[in-house]
């Protein structure tokens, strides 16, 4: 019974997708979504939420696989080297897609080596200090940094990360001279901030919420063009006159040369998934914004961001020789 039903269902599914107005075409066979970061992280949860939503449209099934390591470049490489038939796609943040290939010799050099499918979420980072820090607001902190050059310690999540690019932009725009201390992520950085080993830390939204509520840390400013709806009282650096801020976006992508029909199919399915209420709630809980971009828009976004990051990384001497 099941044996006869399955192909029939598959045909039906294929038929309905053909019947859709555009030439969207679901890939045939089991689909693997490669996530280059660990289980339970934002990257992983976003991928799983979308996969759960679109699995009904994929008769061959869909599985999320975590291939971690090397700042995400291991997982991205696996997607890039996959067969361009839609059975292997990935979800990765901009640093893994755009910055890693500029800093390291990788099998992919930039957006020309993969197909942009669709963007899911975008967020900007925040600048945090200890709850009992002497600076009341960002102006006082900037004044203190100017008054005593090379004295204040600013922590980030590592050299070449978005946090570092944000800090470097801030230094260049404001002329402050601070000591940069790179950590490997929130856990290490937050412990150092709370313990007083650094004076400030560049953090991701969501991460610091509990410590903020408990009064252990304060958010002084956001690296964002406009105020964050989650921190309406926190000023942007733009308000201080510094037009800076690197965004982090999580985008679906596939191997180079993915058929337009398949890209289209995924883009539509992903759009429906991220516009779903459950996904919107998930994003809100993580203090990030749903920011759908279709394939063409995302490709243009990649190109623009890639060039901007090239300039930033070049200034920091981080471009691969």
């Amino acid at each position: 019974m099941r044996k006869t039903l399955l192909p029939a269902l598959a045909m039906l599914a294929a038929f309905t997708s053909f019947a859709a107005p555009a030439a969207a075409q679901a890939p045939s066979g089991a689909v693997t979504v490669i996530v280059p970061f660990t289980v339970g992280g934002l990257n992983d949860l976003t991928a799983r939420a979308v996969a759960e939503k679109i699995k009904g449209q994929l008769p061959g099934g869909i599985a999320v696989i975590n291939r971690t390591g090397a700042g995400g470049s291991i997982g991205v490489t696996e997607v890039v080297q996959g067969k361009p038939d839609g059975t292997v796609i990935g979800l990765a943040p901009t640093p893994a897609l755009l910055d890693q290939p500029q800093m390291n010799a990788l099998p992919y050099k930039g957006p020309q080596d993969y197909t942009a499918i669709a963007n899911t979420v975008t967020y900007y980072q925040l600048l945090a200090v200890r709850g009992d820090a002497p600076w009341k607001d960002i102006k006082e902190l900037m004044a203190a940094a100017k008054a005593s050059p090379a004295k204040l310690r600013f922590g980030t999540s590592g050299i070449g990360t978005a946090a570092h690019l944000n800090l470097a932009q801030l230094q260049a725009a404001s002329g402050i001279d601070v000591v940069h201390v790179p950590f490997s992520g929130w856990a290490e950085g937050s412990a150092a901030l709370l313990g007083g080993h650094v004076d400030t830390l560049v953090i991701n939204p969501g991460e610091g919420r509990q410590l903020t509520n408990a009064g252990r840390i304060r958010i002084l400013a956001v690296f964002q063009p406009a105020r964050s709806p989650f921190y309406p009282d926190v000023p942007t650096f733009k308000e201080l006159g510094y037009d800076i801020g690197v965004n982090l976006s999580f985008s679906f992508f596939g191997p180079k040369g993915l058929p337009a029909g398949v890209t289209d199919f995924y883009a539509k399915a992903i759009r429906a998934a991220v516009e779903d209420k459950a996904f919107q709630d998930f994003a809100k809980a993580r203090e990030i914004e749903v920011n759908y971009m279709d394939s063409a828009k995302l490709a243009a976004f990649f190109d623009k961001e890639f060039k901007e990051h090239t300039a930033l990384l070049d200034k920091l001497g981080l471009l691969k020789k």
């Binding site: 470049s73 291991i74 800093m103 590592g158």
Partner: peptide, 15 residues
């Protein structure tokens, strides 16, 4: 620094 080292050209070794 987040850069690869001692991978001898094997991307896989970067993990």
């Amino acid at each position: 620094t987040g850069t690869q080292r001692f991978t001898f050209g094997f991307t896989q070794l970067a993990q």
